[in-house]
Design a protein around this nucleic acid. Structure first.
Lengths: 331, 331
DNA sequence: CTGAAAGCGCTTACAG
DNA sequence: CTGAAAGCGCTTACAG
């Protein structure tokens, strides 16, 4: 029964007009105290809840944000979503999920997002090339829908984003290995281009070059079983005394293969991951990793978006969250 | 510009009425071929996309489903969401995420879901007690919103659900350990009550009792660091030669502690997990696990929901997907 | 402080 | 096969 109650019936029961009921809900300060109380009481009695769709149409605000995601199953993405969902709920926003796979046209998907009348968009998709990014940005701008990038690095001063400094993180971890006397340090990255991984690569390369060491980036697919083959064959004839995985799972996979090949970790090879996930705690040896506060990135990005949607002033459009290195047994 | 185009402008440009434009979109068979073509051309030229909110209000169908989740970060949940999102997109449904934490009132959240006018609800939350489940079911029924449970076990013949037979799975894996000669087999479960874990416990207990062995269920929190303490102290003075973790991460955690205590796996203790996640591939020894097709559970549940929303006939309201045991080094 | 009325952008009987 | 009109359930100037 509760959902059948409309604003009209509330008005009737409270002996006021629809306008007043609406005001009680949206601009309570404009309503006299006792009428407000009366209306509120009736609302409670009838279990009235305004129809969000009708409200959305009339006010041209849906209090819904669209979240554009590619692979939900990645630990970092799921964690970010948790942060987003929590803050969204806190500010009474709904979140609509849009998944952008390889086979879906991002621009078409974006048109759909626009058609869905979301008030803002969060982009968690860091596999997009620059042309796509620009199209997304432009389309949303045209439609006056604010956009915030979460854990995506995009080089445009005007696009709000929340992330850590991956370049710096890559630099620091590499530096630590160099200071520990290691020279043949590999960055184990992905074949697929992720904006954040490119930053890690930059920082890594810079640190290596500063010490006159040759940067060596090995790229593997994300798939654990495939990594296995890659690692085993590629590294069989290489000198390696340090390795940084762009993801914990990659780092653990690498450790396992090396251990099986008779290498001792950390004695022979220092290993570090990125993200500080459960993988690094459950692995043996346990994995040193860069802690990336993904939940916070999601939460802060969502909070920033609420401000943009409300046209509040924001002093910082590019937010860099702190990271730190969690030392464990692998390094 | 594209979003500013309304149905009215399309009608104008195509020299037809709004009604006809609407029909072209919703009941094309009722429109003469050449007017249809003309309208379609104009729609394309103007880049028209119907406003989903207006459409939702007028038709009382939002083509949106609500997904009620507690902990998104659990691997099984994220994977299910992937399946849900893919099928939702295939059938042109949007998915709205609602996260039900400990501190949010599920019933209030449900009222909000109803107010959001979703056409159907998917429940991924298997921590709910029976009273809550009944309330959810009743509220949705009242509002004629179909509900499908995904990976949740709820004993009501009238509530559609998709899952595997966890009872059977628990039975089978226990049986295998018993057949391997093990007698002191523990089920390592969670403190928190999950409906699926209760089923695993039932199957485990039955298998033990059938062999006149005493079922022993140890409950740990889900947190890896806490598990460590639990396991170390609890199992220090116990005889154990087999252990089944209700989640892979728990099983791996258990393996690690036992290994460190000098036990050999699988020689001294057979270990199995549940879910067949990456944890079991990256662990050493690698973990035997029950493969639960979580992606498929999500996909099938979403598909079932589309049928219910369309009032299509469904022959099976309770769908049990097959599972199988993936043997690896731990057993 | 409150109400009457227009309007948000669609869909859907109802006529023709 | 097509159009005029009512209506979905709200919000929001505009008067008073």
């Amino acid at each position: 029964m509760s959902s059948k109650v409309t604003i009209y019936e509330v008005a009737l029961a409270a002996r006021v007009s629809l306008a007043t009921v609406s005001r009680v809900l949206n601009n309570p300060e404009k309503v006299k105290a006792d009428t407000k109380d009366r209306v509120l009481r009736v609302i409670k009695e009838l279990g009235y809840r305004p129809n969000a769709i009708a409200r959305g149409l009339a006010s041209r605000k849906t209090t819904t944000v669209g979240v554009l995601v590619s692979d939900i199953t990645r630990a970092s993405v799921a964690e970010m979503l948790a942060g987003i969902a929590d803050i969204a709920m806190k500010y009474s926003y709904s979140v609509k999920l849009f998944s952008a796979h390889d086979d879906v046209n991002v621009i078409d998907l974006l048109k759909e997002i626009v058609a869905e009348q979301v008030d803002g968009v969060l982009l968690l998709n860091d596999e997009l090339d620059l042309a796509h990014m620009k199209q997304i940005k432009d389309t949303l701008e045209e439609n006056e829908i604010p956009l915030v990038l979460a854990n995506v690095v995009y080089n445009d001063k005007n696009v709000p984003s929340v992330s850590i400094d991956y370049d710096k993180a890559g630099y620091e971890i590499t530096k630590l290995m160099i200071e520990a006397g290691r020279k043949d340090i590999y960055l184990v990255s992905t074949v697929r281009k992720y904006s954040v991984n490119e930053q890690k690569e930059l920082g890594y390369s810079r640190a290596m070059q500063e010490s006159n060491l040759e940067p060596r980036i090995f790229r593997t697919s994300g798939t654990t079983s495939v990594n296995r083959q890659h690692f085993a064959s590629y590294f069989s004839d290489k000198k390696v005394d340090g390795a940084i995985g762009v993801r914990d799972s990659i780092a653990v996979s690498f450790m396992n293969i090396m251990s099986e090949a008779g290498k001792k970790i950390p004695q022979d090879i220092l290993v570090s991951g990125f993200q500080n996930t459960k993988y690094g705690i459950l692995s043996r040896p346990t994995l040193t990793s860069i802690d990336v506060p993904v939940y916070d990135i999601g939460a802060v990005a969502m909070r920033l978006l609420t401000k943009l949607m409300n046209k509040e002033a924001v002093d910082q459009i590019k937010i860099i969250l702190p990271h730190y290195i969690v030392r464990r047994d692998s390094m």
